[in-house]
Amino acid sequence: MTKSPSWLPAPDDSNLPFFEGAKEGRLRLQRCNDCSAWMFPVRVRCQSCGSTNVKWADASGRGTVYTHARLQREYHPRHSGRLPLVMVQVDLEEGVRVNTNLIDCDPEKVKAGMSVQVAIEHSPSGEAVVVFRPA
């Protein structure tokens, strides 16, 4: 039996810690070692203070729904049989806003302000995919 094709581009040096964290069920983001600001997406320089002393750190994985929408067209194998797929922007406790999916929820009952937490889903080839679910 052939292995399912990868859903994801292979990690590279810029994002490997994120994917290694996901394997362990953790949400990792970059944080500035000088001013402690969190950042998203991947950056080489802190947006707040300009420092390049940026490291990966475990985020709380807790946040609230800033807003949401429902994907109604498939264009990736993961979407198959899952429409409407709930797309969300989550405001993390760390002060950054991430784009992701909300699973294990009634799409009609998702509202701005809802509490959510990080969850891990696995692709057919075993890759860890970071998503969120209601807290």
Binding site: S14, F40, V42, M87, N99, V130
Partner: peptide, 15 residues
């Protein structure tokens, strides 16, 4: 952006 969570955007439906 095709890095970290950005590389997951097609899976999430962000295009």
């Amino acid at each position: 952006r095709r890095n970290a969570m950005g590389s997951l955007y097609p899976l999430y439906g962000f295009a």
